[in-house]
């Protein structure tokens, strides 16, 4: 059952990468901006989860507040940072985005301290269950359940509702979608709202699993999320999901097989380099 455990562990990490990277894919698909500061939204979600949970004693409430506040924050980033820059080439917004990530990291450091924060009461990572011979803790179960719910809901929203279809149409061809009455501005806010909410959820869950949040927690994740959306074929949601799960699995098995030579994070980028050498169009071959 050792390999089954590893496999499951890889999928669980992959699902967190997916929640994080989908926001990046959504923004890139719509505005062609690499939204680097998305990682700061992820860290913000983690910090808010811990702070609200410690203040109220409810982790569920902490996550809810984190998701709502981060969603609003994400829309704010679009309005304040990106919207005025849309008339310039996309790299201008990207540089501003890197700036915001660094700024937020230092803001977290100043406000919450260098050492980071822990939950005052978080029994869940150490609650181990044995399901059909598989070892899994409560947070990991929550990760599987919540990410599945979110991804299925997102898939249903984008294929079964008029607004979701209009959203995809806007990504496909903004000018024509607008001429059929789709409100492109509303679509952008929706984009940042959903992407940021998912990233905050991932941040909160990772905080719960590690029982720890720190100011720089978004940094490595931001690189990985970039790797994932490139692997997924830039702008493809399905590709992003596949790439995120694949990366989770590669890390999970890689740390066992070559972990004594290579760090977990180094593996991720080795994987990226190899895949892009073989398939420059990304794993699924979707074109952006």
């Amino acid at each position: 059952m050792y390999y089954v455990d590893l496999f499951l562990n890889g999928l669980i990490f992959g699902s967190m990468y997916a929640l994080m990277a989908i926001g990046l894919t959504l923004v890139y698909g719509l505005l062609r901006i690499l939204h680097i500061s998305h990682a700061a939204v992820y860290a913000l979600g983690a910090f808010i989860t811990v702070i609200v949970a410690n203040a109220t004693g409810s982790i569920a409430l902490g996550m809810l507040v984190a998701v709502v506040v981060s969603a609003i924050f994400g829309m704010g980033v679009y309005r304040v940072l990106y919207q005025p820059m849309l008339r310039y080439p996309p790299y201008v917004a990207m540089i501003a985005s890197i700036g915001l990530l660094i700024f937020m990291e230092d803001a977290f450091r100043i406000i919450f301290g260098e050492q980071g924060l822990t939950f005052t009461r978080n029994p869940y990572p150490t609650q181990i269950h044995n399901l059909f011979g598989i070892t899994i803790n409560t947070v990991q179960i929550a990760m599987i359940v919540l990410s599945t719910i979110c991804l299925v809901a997102l898939a249903l929203f984008t294929t079964r509702t008029r607004m979701g279809i209009a959203w995809r149409a806007t990504v496909s061809n903004p000018t024509i979608a607008t001429s059929f009455g789709v409100d492109a501005i509303k679509v952008r806010y929706l984009n940042f709202m959903i992407g940021s909410a998912l990233a905050a959820l991932a941040g909160g869950l990772i905080a719960l699993l590690n029982n720890f949040v720190e100011p720089t927690m978004g940094f490595v994740v931001s690189y990985k999320a970039l790797a994932i959306i490139v692997l997924g074929g830039l702008g493809s949601m399905r590709g992003t999901l596949i790439a995120a799960l694949a990366l989770g699995l590669v890390e999970s098995f890689g740390t066992i097989w070559v972990g004594s030579y290579l760090d977990r994070d180094a593996l991720a980028f080795l994987f990226l380099i190899i895949v892009l050498m073989v398939r420059p169009q990304g794993l699924t071959g979707a074109h952006a």
């Binding site: 294929t159 279809i165 995809r168 149409a169 496909s172 061809n173």
Partner: peptide, 19 residues
């Protein structure tokens, strides 16, 4: 034509009737 190429036939019509 400038269709929404990665949307299905049904979905393209949905956008057409969006208003």
């Amino acid at each position: 034509r400038r269709l929404f190429t990665d949307l299905t036939v049904e979905e393209n019509l949905t956008v057409g009737g969006y208003r």
